[in-house]
Design a protein around this nucleic acid. Structure first.
Lengths: 102, 102
DNA sequence: AAAACCAGTTTTTTCTACAAACCTATTATA
DNA sequence: TATAATAGGTTTGTAGAAAAAACTGGTTTT
């Protein structure tokens, strides 16, 4: 292993993606076209506040799109991964592989 | 993607390994039998305090062994990954793969 | 003698994840 | 009818952790 091969790779790891909860969210979203708040809540076993925070972070980074609508009179929120999100998720894994054992 | 497949995988991610700097350190250590402080310092481009903190965390978790000796009159510290460290590094990647895109 | 090096430790700052409490409105239930 | 639960959050507080900066004690170089 030469110095330049490993050199500073850790700096290329996107922290928005790197957080395990958000990795799980993105993984789910890459294989489902649409997911909603409650599905993520029960699947991931988070508190609502915590989930909302992660969702916000992903939305701010343009990784996901948020759709708010009413079903009857009840609010319903669903999410979709964006093209950017999908691309960044892929890129993240390419970078991560540089840090994996052979 | 079924619920149970993704369910809570994020909780299995070992945070000691997950930090990018420590991933880089472990990656280096899996392919070199011995590395020293300065090598890591210049290779990774960290401050000494920051590197020392990461080293400590890895030592506390029994991931690496620290060997302190004198070369002439100067202290010299080198590190080696332990069997535990190697195993946990492997295990980490097995878990992470559950979160990777197909 | 002064400056710089080695291998850190200690201190401080900054950031983050996470939980708990709260909120508004709606709907189910006893 | 009261109350409990649901949906989808926001606000607030805390604990832990990453990172930089400053400090240390000894050594070596200039």
């Amino acid at each position: 292993m030469s110095k330049s091969q490993v050199n500073q790779i850790h700096n290329s790891i996107n922290r928005v993606v790197h957080e395990p909860v958000r990795l799980a969210i993105l993984k789910i979203m890459t294989s489902a076209k649409k997911v909603d708040f409650n599905f993520l809540l029960t699947t991931l076993g988070l508190t609502k506040g915590n989930l909302a925070t992660h969702i916000n972070k992903l939305e701010t980074a343009d990784f996901i799109e948020v759709k708010k609508e009413f079903r009857g009179k009840m609010p319903h929120t669903s999410y979709r991964i964006t093209r950017t999100g999908r691309r960044q998720f892929q890129k993240y894994w390419e970078n991560m592989k540089e840090l994996a054992p052979e």
